[in-house]
Design a protein around this nucleic acid. Structure first.
Lengths: 140, 140
DNA sequence: TGATTATCAACAAGTCATGCTAGCTAACAG
DNA sequence: CTGTTAGCTAGCATGACTTGTTGATAATCA
């Protein structure tokens, strides 16, 4: 994701207004590795800006996602998560605590076998599930 | 997935009753490569057994899923899909028509890099997205 | 300043999935 | 064959997540 300053410029250029709410969300996402949901991002935002609405958070996230500045990740765990890391990367999810980490896989493109002729692959998403070190330690 | 006959035996052994509704669902899933949602499976079932309820379809699919006879697949496209193929396989999804194919990847386990120490990977899910031959042909 | 757009609040809707009730029916054990 | 039990259906409700709408207010930016 671009820096908050770059996003401000980009929003202005596209005719979007640069409001304090949007700027707050830019800052909260910048360097954020927590893969927040709209809801959790809203909770943090509301602490810094009481009165901000969940609707606005959803709205701004949609805009950022449409602009390709954040990645939309659906891990099948209910809510969609947002990732400011838009590199070509994949995810590691702890089944116990739900924490999500970004990981990089070098073996791509992957080869596969199956009854599929002429399919043009545009993207590959890989999700590794398991137990993180912290959870393994706590349950031991 | 086991054959309908084997499932009947398994259900009986577990104290579940073998009803015509359940047997119908067993048959509809047997060898099914369409990755149906509960809803689409219900539609087909209702043609053969008018009066069957969507609730019963969901219920039976949950039972089969809990018994490990079908795989629960969430492609982030709304509804959960069910796959009677319980081998270690992955999915190829056409972004245009939504068709899902089973594929096998030989390069597993995959290696990844990232800021993750001591994570124990239990499973890997890979989803390839792109355009199937039919859609490529239609749009050309 | 003035036009446009964003925001907020409140409410609604939609999708997917599941829970609950009540009454009827059917499966299975003995 | 019969009683017990489980499953089925219909209908209604709930819950999570997300988006749409409306109308009033406020802020942005040219």
């Amino acid at each position: 994701m671009k820096t908050p300053e770059e996003l401000v410029a980009r929003f202005r250029k596209q005719g979007y207004k640069v409001t304090p709410q949007r700027q707050l969300i830019f800052r909260l996402l910048n360097g954020n590795t927590a893969h927040p949901t709209a809801e959790t991002l809203y909770e943090v935002a509301a602490q810094q800006m009481p009165g901000i609405s969940l609707r606005t958070v959803y709205q701004t996230l949609s805009e950022l996602s449409a602009m390709g500045e954040v990645q939309h990740i659906d891990l099948g765990s209910g809510a969609v998560r947002f990732d400011p890391n838009v590199d070509d990367h994949h995810h590691l999810v702890c089944s116990t605590c739900g924490v999500v980490h970004d990981v990089y896989v070098n073996q791509t493109p992957l080869h596969f076998e199956g009854d599929v002729e002429g399919f043009a692959v545009h993207s590959t998403r890989i999700v590794f599930s398991g137990e993180c070190a912290r959870c393994a330690h706590l349950s031991a």
